[in-house]
Amino acid sequence: MSAKRRSRRSFLVESFTGLNAAWVAANYPGILAAQNYVRKATDAGQTPRLAVLNEAQAVEIEAMTAQIIPSDSTPGAREAHCVYFIDRALATFSKDKQPAYMQGLQDLQAKALQLYPGVGKFSALTPEQQIKTLTEIEKTPFFEMVRTHTIIGFLSRPEHGGNSNKVGWKLIGYDDSLNHKPPFGYYDAQA
């Protein structure tokens, strides 16, 4: 049990290692807080946050999401925890998509192996190789489904598992107060 907890934590902590260094520097306190949060949650023995995907699958899906909305000078799908949104979606509203995800992951792996023999997993490819692999499958229903879920996870309310710390909303400049007063934008302010 404790080993499982630890590995889950390490998965989450590792989630932050794929970041661009400049972004990490700029956001270091925030990352620490997030890591601390994860640590506390896992140490408190809360229900595992992954409900449908196992960790190996989550790593692959997360690698996909991180190419769909990459992390650069601002957070991407990885920091938004889109993979947790996807996992929760597969446990709830998108239960019917579980088989498609499982099959899609196998196909992804096969494609990665076909293109880059010898590399075990999609997630182990270089970013350029990952992009090449996804470009090959970008017309498939599986890719479209992961794209849709990644974007929704990035931009939906954080309680669904993604958009962690509202990083998605921050990127698009969306103020979620649901209460706005004019002027709303530049042009009505000028009018």
Partner: peptide, 28 residues
């Protein structure tokens, strides 16, 4: 936010990746 992200960007913008993210931020 969903409508913007899933299909609201201007024609010719990439559907995923760095170019997609850039357009998402700039056009929002």
């Amino acid at each position: 936010p969903f409508e913007l992200g899933l299909g609201g960007l201007s024609p010719g913008t990439p559907r995923w990746g760095a170019g997609y993210k850039k357009a998402l931020q700039e056009e929002a």
